[in-house]
Design a protein around this nucleic acid. Structure first.
Lengths: 339, 339
DNA sequence: CCTGATTCGGAAAGCGCATTCCAACGCACT
DNA sequence: AGTGCGTTGGAATGCGCTTTCCGAATCAGG
C-alpha cells in the first residue's frame, strides 16, 4: 500500500515482461489480445497509474501544456486561461498553469523550467515588454525552447521569434478615441497601463493617433500611469480630477482600472456619464456588473486563448505566424455626450 | 543548441564528475569552493536547468505543489489560489494549478495523476460533496496519496481523512439570517447552491436554524437552486420574484449569484434595498464593485489558501487537523429594513 | 517438408539525475 | 613514522518507463 504500483508490478501480476506490459498499456505496438487483457486487468486491480516523470524521461518529452500568465486573479488573464483550458480539454491534455505576478525574472524562470522539463507545448500569455534587454533574454529562452523541439505561442505583441496571437490594441485605441470624439469629448484624461508593456504602448498610440487626426491634443498632464488594478485606477482618476479641471471623459487602459476609477468618481460626487464619461478596455465580465455598465473595447480573450493553443498544437510552419484578432467598441452606460 | 544541456554537460565543461556537479548545484554536501565555482560557472554558461522529471525520479518525489480547484475563473477560487501562491512563493516552490470545472471525475483524475507523479504536496480547493459513493472514491485516492508519503490538505468540509481548512459556513448562514431578521425581514427568498455540496448544505442549514429559532418559516417554494454563476443567480431571482409575491429579501449563497440577482432585480424594476434587500456570501472583490455594494458574509479566502499550504508543508501529526476559520457579516448597501 | 517473410514477446539499454559506497587524501595524534 | 579520524571526489547503481534490437514462433508459398 505504501508504494504506488509500478509497471513492473503490473507485468509481474500479469505474468509478462515489462516491455509487453508497456505496449499493452500504451498501444505502441500490437499485443496478443489475451495477453493485453491480462495486463489491463492487472493494471486495474493494482490501481496502476504510470509515473509521468519516468514516462517523460524515457520519451524525451511531455505532452502536458504549459501556460504562463501574468496574473491569474486578473479577469483578463483568467478569461484567456479559460479559452486555453477549453481547447486543451477537447484534446484531453493536462494543463499546468504558472503565475508570474508580472515579474519578468519569474517569467523567464518558468520558461526555463518548462524547457528543462522537455515540455512540448507552451502558451505565454502576457503582454510583451518594450525593454530590449529583457526582450532579448526572453527571445533567447523561447528560441532555446523551440530549438529543443517545443512549440511556443505568445499572446500579445512580443519581440520573440515565435507564433503569436495578438489583439488589435492599436485599432482598439483608435476606435475608442473616435467614439469619444463623436460624442463631443475634447478634454480627455487617460489612465495608462504600466510603462514598457507593448499593450499599453499600442493602445495609447492608437488613441493618440485618432485624437491628433481630429486636431485634439493630449497633453502629458492628462495622462497618468496606472498598474492595471482597481486601486491604480482609482488613484489615477483622483489625480486626473485634481490636475485637469475641465475633464469630460476618462479612459482607463483596462476595465479593472476603469472600475476603480468609477468608484473614485462616485466618491468625488461626479456623476457618470452625465458629468464625466468613462471607458475601459478588454470587456471582461466585470464590465457589465457595475452600474452603469462600462463602455469598453471588446477583446476576444477566450478566443485568443483557444487560438493560441490551437496554433501551438498544430504543425510548425516555415514562417512565423501571427494571428491578429479584431476588436470593437461596446458602447454602454458610462459614456454620454461631452459638453 | 538543439538539446537542452544536462548535468553531464555541465560536469564535462567544469572538468568534474557528475556526482560533484550534482552536489555543487544542490548543495547536498560540501564541495571544495574552487570546484564549486567552476561548476556554477559552467552551469551559467550553458544555461543549465535541471530536468525536474529526472530529479523527481531520482529523488522519488517532487517538491512542486499541486492545487486542484473547481473553477479558476470564479473569484472565490482565484482568491484562494492567490493565498496559496503567496505562501508558495515565500517557500520558493513551483505551483501547478488544475481546473476541474466542478467535475468530480476530473478531480479524481487529477489527484490520481499527482499521486502517480509522486507529488508531495496537494491542496484540494473545492467544496466537498455529500454523495457517499463519490466521497468514498475521493477518500480512497487521498488515502493512497498520503500513504505514498504525500501531504494533502482540503479546503472545505470533506469526508476524506486528511487535514482541512474550513470556513464556518454554518455560522455564516446563521449570522446572515440574524442580520436579516434584525432588519425586520420575514419573507426571504434563497438562491441556493448546487445540491450535494457541503458548503451549500452548511450555509443553508445555518440560515434555516436561525430562522426557525425566530419562528420564521422558510417554505420550499422560497428556495431555488442555483449553480454559483451570475446567470444562475439571475434566473433564481426571477423565479423567486415570480413565485413569492411578498418577498422582502433575497439571499444568494455566493456573491457571484448575488451579482446576477442584482441585475435581474434591476431589470424587473425592483429597487435595492428599498423594495428588496439582497445579500450574498464570500465577500469577493466584486462585492464592492457593484452598486449598491453588496452586503455579504466575509470568508477569508486568501487566508484559507495560505493556511492550507502552510498546513501541507508543516509536519504531519498523529491526529487529523481541521482548522476552522471564522466568518463575519459585512453590512453594506444592498440591505435595508424590511417592511 | 523446407525456406523466407512476418508477427510478437523478452532482454537490455538508456532517459537525466541523486546518492550510496569506496578510495584517496590530509590532519592531529601517539 | 605510524595509526585513526574526518573530509571530499569519483564510479556505479537505480528511480520507472519506453524503445530498440533479437530471437522464437507462426504462416504462406513452392
Amino acid at each position: 500500500m505504501g508504494r504506488a504500483p509500478t509497471l513492473s508490478d503490473v507485468a509481474g501480476l500479469a505474468g509478462v515482461s515489462m516491455a509487453t506490459a508497456s505496449r499493452a498499456l500504451t498501444g505502441t505496438r500490437r499485443v496478443d489480445t489475451r495477453l493485453r487483457e491480462r495486463v489491463l486487468a492487472a493494471a486495474r486491480e493494482l490501481g496502476y497509474a504510470p509515473n509521468p516523470h519516468a514516462r517523460a524521461l524515457a520519451r524525451a518529452g511531455d505532452a502536458s501544456i504549459g501556460v504562463v500568465v501574468h496574473d491569474l486573479t486578473d479577469p483578463y488573464f483568467s478569461e484567456i486561461v479559460r479559452g486555453v483550458l477549453a481547447e486543451a480539454e477537447a484534446q484531453e491534455r493536462m494543463v499546468l498553469i504558472c503565475n508570474t505576478w508580472r515579474d519578468p525574472d519569474r517569467e523567464l524562470a518558468y520558461v526555463a523550467s518548462f524547457r528543462a522539463q522537455r515540455l512540448q507545448t507552451l502558451v505565454l500569455a502576457g503582454s510583451g515588454v518594450e525593454d530590449r534587454r529583457l526582450g532579448a533574454r526572453m527571445a533567447a529562452q523561447i528560441a532555446g525552447f523551440e530549438a529543443a523541439g517545443g512549440r511556443a505561442v505568445l499572446i500579445g505583441r512580443h519581440h520573440a521569434p515565435a507564433d503569436a496571437v495578438v489583439p488589435d490594441n492599436l485599432g482598439g485605441g483608435r476606435l475608442l478615441a473616435e467614439e469619444l470624439l463623436r460624442l463631443g469629448h475634447r478634454r480627455i484624461g487617460v489612465i495608462s497601463g504600466p510603462a514598457g508593456l507593448t499593450s499599453t504602448r499600442d493602445r495609447l498610440a492608437g488613441f493618440r493617433a485618432a485624437l491628433e487626426r481630429a486636431g485634439v491634443g493630449l497633453p502629458d498632464e492628462q495622462v497618468v500611469e496606472g498598474d492595471f488594478t482597481r486601486e491604480g485606477g482609482a488613484r489615477g482618476a483622483r489625480e486626473l480630477l485634481d490636475r485637469v479641471p475641465g475633464l469630460t471623459a476618462i479612459w482607463a487602459l483596462n476595465d479593472v482600472m476603469a472600475v476603480g476609477a468609477l468608484r473614485a468618481l462616485r466618491e468625488r460626487g461626479r456623476r457618470v456619464p452625465e458629468e464625466v464619461s468613462l471607458c475601459g478596455f478588454d470587456d471582461i465580465p466585470l464590465a457589465t456588473d457595475v452600474t452603469p455598465e462600462l463602455t469598453t473595447v471588446h477583446v476576444p480573450m477566450v478566443e485568443m486563448g483557444a487560438r493560441a493553443l490551437r496554433l501551438a498544437l498544430g504543425p510548425r510552419h516555415r514562417q512565423i505566424r501571427t494571428e491578429h484578432l479584431p476588436v470593437h467598441v461596446v458602447a454602454r452606460g458610462t459614456t454620454g455626450p461631452g459638453r
